[in-house]
């Protein structure tokens, strides 16, 4: 039995997943683009090729930035076959067509048994072994169970769902709403108003997701609204920092520079708004967010728009 877990990606999230699997008692092989060692822990071995990784692990967790996932998946596809499970932990949707990352993996690899991670798990907690919660989705029950077996430990709870589309869209759309959360907080919106706006935002996200084939209820689960609560309770998410920078009057590159980390929302939000418009779904929160990020509305106008009806 190939008990070993494969992790693709030596960034913070990949390292965190490797730690979680290690803590759950599994051997881990990790592939990173960078040659320097990502983790120095017995039981986590860094390999330099996908063939080694694929030969030793059935379950492969992919944690690379969304802009490189297609290339990485294509290389991984040369090494894996139909017996592998590939589960990604990437918050984003690919390209203008908003293709879920699991679809990209299906297009680029022979793998069919795919899945996605979501939920409010934070890299630092996973690395430090502080209690955390994750969601995993796959239409194949054996995949969700394999992920749970691989990652769950007394300090990590993994909830499972078959709604893959839901988890992928929720992760991406809620990420956008976190920008709104950071923005609202930084311009001094009261907690009640902020909570109200974000709840509306989650409703909008659920309608958008449903149009893409997701279960609306997934947006109100660990993979959805839990993310918003975690961010409001103080989890340091880059999206929240981007929102804060916008609130301080920084736009585009300046805002991104302040955050110091890539955030999907600025590219994602306009595409999501276009997607909703095409399907005649009214999404005032997302629309306003798009205007805020483009710098076409000032703080007062944004607030006035969000508080108005219609």
């Amino acid at each position: 039995m190939r008990n070993t877990i494969g992790v693709v990606g030596g960034g913070r999230w990949g390292v965190a997943l490797a730690h979680a699997a290690h803590r759950a008692g599994r051997e881990v092989v990790l592939w990173s683009r960078r040659s320097e060692k990502a983790v120095a822990l017995d039981g986590i071995e860094q390999v330099d090729g996908f063939r080694t990784l694929a030969a030793r692990a059935t379950l492969v967790l992919v944690a690379v930035p969304s802009e490189v996932v297609r290339d990485v998946a294509r290389q991984l596809g040369d090494a894996i076959d139909g017996s592998h499970y590939v589960v990604h932990g990437i918050r984003g949707l690919s390209g203008e067509g908003l293709t879920p990352i699991s679809e990209v993996i299906r297009e680029e690899t022979p793998c069919r048994r795919v899945g996605a991670l979501g939920g409010p798990g934070v890299a630092d907690d996973l690395i430090a072994g502080r209690p955390g919660v994750l969601a995993v989705a796959s239409r194949f029950p054996e995949v969700t169970h394999a992920v749970r077996d691989a990652l769950e430990s007394p300090s990590l709870r993994v909830s499972i769902t078959p709604d893959l589309t839901g988890v992928e869209w929720a992760s991406a759309l809620i990420g956008c709403l976190l920008v709104a959360a950071g923005f609202g907080r930084s311009i001094g919106v009261s907690p009640g108003v902020l909570a109200g706006l974000l709840t509306r935002g989650v409703h909008e996200a659920s309608r958008i997701g449903a149009a893409a084939g997701a279960e609306a209820s997934t947006f109100f689960s660990v993979a959805g609204i839990a993310d918003v609560m975690a961010a409001l309770a103080g989890d340091e998410r880059p999206e929240v920092r981007l929102g804060a920078a916008l609130g301080d009057g920084l736009f585009g590159e300046a805002a991104r520079a302040r955050v110091g980390q890539r955030v999907e929302a600025p590219t994602l939000v306009p595409r999501v708004v276009a997607f909703a418009k095409e399907r005649r779904i009214d999404v005032p929160v997302f629309r306003t967010l798009a205007a805020a990020m483009a710098g076409t509305m000032n703080r007062d106008e944004i607030l006035a728009t969000l508080m108005s009806r219609g």
Partner: peptide
């Protein structure tokens, strides 16, 4: 596969090195 690579169809019903019947998996396939 979609990229034109040759793939062994038997690998899709393999789990832990064995060929396994699994109704839930096959329903999704």
């Amino acid at each position: 596969d979609a990229r034109g690579r040759t793939v062994d169809p038997a690998s899709y019903v393999m789990r832990d090195g064995e060929y396994v019947l699994d109704d839930a998996r096959d329903a999704q396939y």
